[in-house]
């Protein structure tokens, strides 16, 4: 953005030199306002400013840049007979519009960005910002609200809001606990306090058969889940 603005500012000076100034001292009309290469840079820069300022949802800057772009697009291509250099010529009205557009873009963008605050996230923290990506499909088994809370927990971590992140994680955990209850086909009410839920899960675990290795493995996983939840509850 800064580079683009800097370049626009320098072109602004060029136009003044080759355009207005040339006309004022009565240089022949064969001369052009700016060379072709600079013209395309100008068009590209204005288009970039429009895209960028629209992406940033600025209100005034894109309109100012569009005025300039429209004026610039009305330029007439010409080439210098002696040197063969190609360029474009602006009519006096469009040159005025273009010049004020270039001057106003700088002012508009400064004014509009002054009311903004921008944040930058370091690459190491980015996975937390896109927290669901860290969970892949494992969350599909649990209620949608838990996905939402985990997503927000990650965003809170990315922005350094530890307490808010833990708050979201606890809410996600509550939804996940409801999911466990549903998963085990338990009749327990997931709105119960955690202690009661834990008793229900404990009873369910105890009731599971263990007559073959598969059954034993499942029972062990339920037992581990019970233990994990107990630790979370204590925390």
């Amino acid at each position: 953005l800064a580079a683009s603005l800097g370049w626009i500012a320098s072109v602004h000076e060029d136009i003044k030199l080759f355009g207005i100034f040339a006309k004022e001292i009565g240089v022949s009309d064969d001369r052009f306002s700016i060379i072709e290469e600079e013209y395309y840079k100008l068009i590209g820069s204005l288009e970039y400013m429009i895209t960028l300022s629209e992406t940033l949802r600025l209100n005034v800057t894109p309109e100012v840049a569009k005025d300039g772009l429209n004026a610039a697009k009305r330029a007439i291509f010409a080439s210098d007979r002696e040197s063969g250099i190609r360029g474009v010529r602006f009519n006096i009205l469009d040159l005025g519009i273009l010049r004020s557009s270039l001057r106003d873009i700088v002012m508009a963008i400064e004014k509009e960005l002054r009311g903004r605050r921008s944040y930058s996230l370091e690459p190491a923290i980015l996975p937390y910002y896109d927290a669901l990506g860290m969970f892949s499909e494992t969350l599909d088994k649990f209620p949608a609200s838990s996905r939402e809370d985990i997503e927000h927990a990650g965003k809170c971590i990315a922005f350094g809001e530890g307490t808010a992140a833990v708050f979201h994680l606890m809410r996600a955990m509550e939804a996940i606990v409801s999911g466990i209850v549903a998963l085990g086909g338990l009749s327990a009410n997931p709105d119960k306090e955690w202690g009661k839920l834990l008793s229900d899960i404990g009873r369910h675990t105890e009731s599971l058969p263990q007559s073959n290795p598969q059954e034993k493995a499942l029972r062990n996983r339920w037992s581990a889940c019970h233990k994990n939840l107990y630790h979370v509850k204590q925390a």
Binding site: G154, E161, T163, V166, L169, I180, L183, L218, C225, A235
Partner: peptide, 24 residues
């Protein structure tokens, strides 16, 4: 009050827990 580092630990534990649960 939790620091970001503590919140990260809770987050990572939750993730490990969920991954384990998904196998139930």
């Amino acid at each position: 009050t939790y620091t970001t580092e503590e919140a990260k630990q809770v987050f990572d534990s939750t993730r490990a827990f969920v991954r384990e649960l998904a196998t139930l």
